[in-house]
């Protein structure tokens, strides 16, 4: 451990950030501490840092996303990196070929970091096997979204001072949510208690195998919760008969004042965005500055991505002048 203090590189023992699963509490804490550092810096500094100067970061998004991509882009720019955004038209190219062909093409350009989002679970892992640079998972299918869980954790820790011992209720479409999975892994590792709430079509009983408590009733699930984490309901779930209608979903699983009253009086509300107001969350609750940390989550998003880029590139050889 003494050696670890002398050499920052051994604090984080992974080449890539593909998921939260498998990270230790120490590694997560390192990322959260660095995020705190960048959060403070972002509030005062306006000139880019030099940590990633000479590095190239490519944002490769196979799924449309404005906020996550922008957040990664800003994070890289604020660390002094050169950033290229690539949005890959998913429909125009045969799916399977796109990923590995693109990976090989990009690899040949020698980027330092590849941030990738893909609609299929496991796709970012597959990509990481084909490239030599650092790969950061910007969300893969219904699998993981590690930077989202990290930014949620920073937000919680700044408001509550800790993660250990908190009761966190994750509500909504847990089954299809990469945000939920990454959060469950992170919160468990950091000693929080996790509940998941939603209808059995979206929160299957087998979720208990994740070590979470499963509730199908909002009032009971929210009882005495410290944190209420709402998930976005993809509107296409209506077609698959996962839920019969928006009206019915909002009535039983949408977060409003009445349901929120079951949680602790100072319970904090989180949402990964973008919100479906009137579907999973009522505007009155979402916009309550005292309760909702939704804007702060966005702010922390940039800080967390700076922390990830910094920590991951520590292990790369120094960039050289050409």
């Amino acid at each position: 451990m003494v050696a670890a203090l002398k050499n920052p590189n051994v604090d984080f023992r992974h080449r890539n950030l593909l998921g939260i699963e498998g990270l230790s509490a120490e590694e997560i804490s390192l990322l959260l501490d660095r995020s705190d550092h960048y959060a403070e810096r972002n509030r005062i500094a306006r000139t880019p840092g030099k940590t990633l100067s000479g590095r190239t970061v490519i944002n490769l998004f196979f799924e449309t996303s404005t906020r996550t991509r922008t957040s990664f882009q800003l994070a890289a720019l604020r660390l002094g990196a050169d950033v290229v955004n690539m949005a890959v038209e998913h429909s125009s190219i045969k799916k399977g070929e796109t990923l590995l062909d693109t990976a090989l093409t990009l690899n040949a350009m020698h980027p330092d970091v590849l941030v990738c989002r893909h609609p299929e679970s496991g796709a970012v892992k597959l990509l990481s096997q084909k490239v030599e640079c650092v790969v950061v998972n910007g969300g893969d299918g219904a699998h993981e979204h590690p930077t989202q869980a990290l930014l949620d954790a920073v937000t919680i820790r700044r408001r509550k001072g800790r993660l250990q011992g908190l009761t966190v209720a994750i509500c909504g479409d847990v089954m299809h949510s990469r945000v939920a999975r990454s959060n469950i892994y992170l919160l468990h590792t950091m000693g929080a208690r996790v509940r998941v709430i939603g209808p059995p079509t979206l929160v299957p009983g087998a979720m208990e195998r994740f070590g979470v408590e499963v509730f199908h009733d909002m009032a009971r699930g929210l009882k005495d919760a410290d944190i209420v984490m709402m998930l976005r309901l993809q509107l296409e779930r209506m077609q698959g008969s996962y839920v019969p209608s928006i009206r019915e979903y909002f009535r039983f699983f949408g977060l409003d004042r009445q349901k929120l009253a079951n949680a602790k009086p100072d319970a904090l509300i989180l949402h990964p965005g973008p919100m479906n107001r009137g579907v999973e969350i009522d505007s009155e609750v979402a916009d309550d500055i005292g309760r909702s940390a939704i804007q702060e989550q966005v702010e922390m998003g940039v800080a967390v991505r700076m922390a990830c880029l910094e920590v991951l590139t520590r292990n790369l050889p120094e960039p050289e002048d050409g």
């Binding site: 799916k95 399977g96 070929e97 990923l99 893909h118 299929e120 679970s121 496991g122 597959l126 299918g141």
Partner: peptide, 10 residues
């Protein structure tokens, strides 16, 4: 080509 793709597409 039928197998070296994301799992759901294989």
């Amino acid at each position: 080509d039928s197998k070296r793709v994301p799992f759901a597409q294989a």
